[in-house]
């Protein structure tokens, strides 16, 4: 694995995430053919420098506009990659939709429940352990603005492994046909 993709819906804090993980080593580049920017940087992972890419926010992998198309294309081009799926901790259901789509495509995923502090203030609680059990991928609560949870996130990135979507539907007691609705 030599690349890390930061994916998530719009306004979940991906870019703050990016700046935290990449530090000051940021370069900005332009994706050819579109007006949509993405950021690329490097982060230190277990003593190794790896590329970190800040993908434009997308609601789902069925693109509705140009920016989302870019996001999906970037995901499809990168094969040897780990995806950090950033979810707004107070809007978990919406975020899980995208996370499940990425998992379904066979990528190793680690889920960050970002803005954990805001969710807490709004009295939204998520059973992280349970969610981890269901998804079979690491789930880490984070607060990107203060770096809370980042140590755990980075140290658990190696646990990210592809999970068969059937396993997830089985663990919530559904069958495959119900997921496509």
């Amino acid at each position: 694995m030599n690349k890390v993709l930061l994916m998530g819906q719009a306004n979940v804090g991906k870019s703050v995430f990016f700046n935290r993980l990449a530090g000051a080593n940021v370069t900005v580049s332009n994706y050819p053919g579109t007006s949509v920017d993405f950021d690329k940087g490097r982060m230190l992972l277990e003593g190794k420098h790896v590329d970190l890419i800040d993908v434009p926010g997308t609601f789902s992998l069925q693109p509705k506009d140009r920016a989302e198309e870019v996001a999906v294309k970037m995901l499809e081009q990168e094969k040897d990659t780990v995806v950090i799926c950033v979810i707004d901790a107070s809007k978990v259901e919406r975020g899980l939709y995208l996370a499940l789509e990425i998992i379904e495509r066979g990528y190793p995923v680690i889920v960050a429940l970002n803005m954990w502090d805001t969710a807490k203030n709004a009295k939204v609680k998520t059973d992280v352990k349970k969610l981890e059990q269901i998804l079979g991928v690491p789930v880490v609560p984070t607060v990107a603005t203060t770096s809370e949870g980042f140590k755990e996130l980075v140290s658990r990135m190696r646990e990210a492994a592809p999970v068969a979507i059937e396993e997830i539907t089985k663990s919530v007691g559904g069958d495959k046909s119900e997921t496509h609705n």
Partner: peptide, 9 residues
């Protein structure tokens, strides 16, 4: 349309 907007919750 369902798939299209499910991502928006």
């Amino acid at each position: 349309l369902k798939d299209k907007i499910a991502g928006m919750g």
